[in-house]
Amino acid sequence: MDSMIPTRPPLDLPRRIRCTDPEQGSLECGHQLWHLKAARSWATHVARTTPACADPLLVSLSELHTNALKHTASGLPGGRVRIEIERRRRLFLLRVTDDGPRPGAEATVPEVRPMLGLCGAEELLVEGGYGLALLDAMALYWDFTREPDGGLMVRAAFDRSGRTRMAA
Rank of each mutant, 00 (worst) to 15 (best):
W42Y: 05
Q24R: 15
I83P: 07
L94S: 02
K37E: 12
I17N: 03
E23V: 00
R82M: 13
S60D: 12
D21S: 12
S60R: 06
P77K: 06
E28A: 01
R89H: 12
E63P: 13
E23P: 06
A52Q: 15
D21P: 03
L76N: 12
W42F: 10
R88H: 13
R89E: 15
R18E: 13
T44P: 01
E63H: 10
E63K: 01
R15Q: 15
R40F: 11
A47L: 09
A73Y: 03
A39K: 12
G75H: 02
R80S: 05
H31L: 02
T72W: 00
P22K: 04
R18V: 14
L93K: 08
E28I: 08
W42P: 02
L91P: 05
L33S: 07
A54L: 04
G30L: 05
T66L: 02
R40S: 13
C19D: 12
G78Y: 05
K70W: 04
W42K: 00
L58R: 14
G25E: 06
H31T: 04
K37D: 14
P22E: 07
G78N: 03
Q32T: 07
S62I: 04
L57C: 06
H65D: 11
R18F: 11
N67F: 00
P14R: 11
L27W: 12
L36I: 15
L27Y: 05
R87L: 14
A39M: 04
G79E: 06
Q32G: 11
L64T: 02
A38Q: 15
K70M: 04
R16P: 05
A73Q: 12
T72P: 00
R89G: 07
H31E: 09
R82N: 12
G30K: 11
R90M: 06
L69F: 00
L61H: 10
H65L: 04
A52F: 05
S41A: 14
S41F: 07
S62Y: 09
E63Q: 01
P56E: 08
S41N: 11
S74P: 00
Q24I: 09
K37C: 10
L69P: 04
G25I: 10
S74N: 02
H35Y: 09
P56Y: 06
L93R: 13
I17W: 05
V59D: 13
R89P: 06
R88C: 06
S62H: 13
A52C: 03
A47E: 04
S62T: 08
R80W: 09
S26H: 15
H45Q: 09
E28H: 03
T20M: 03
L64F: 07
C29M: 08
H31P: 04
I85D: 11
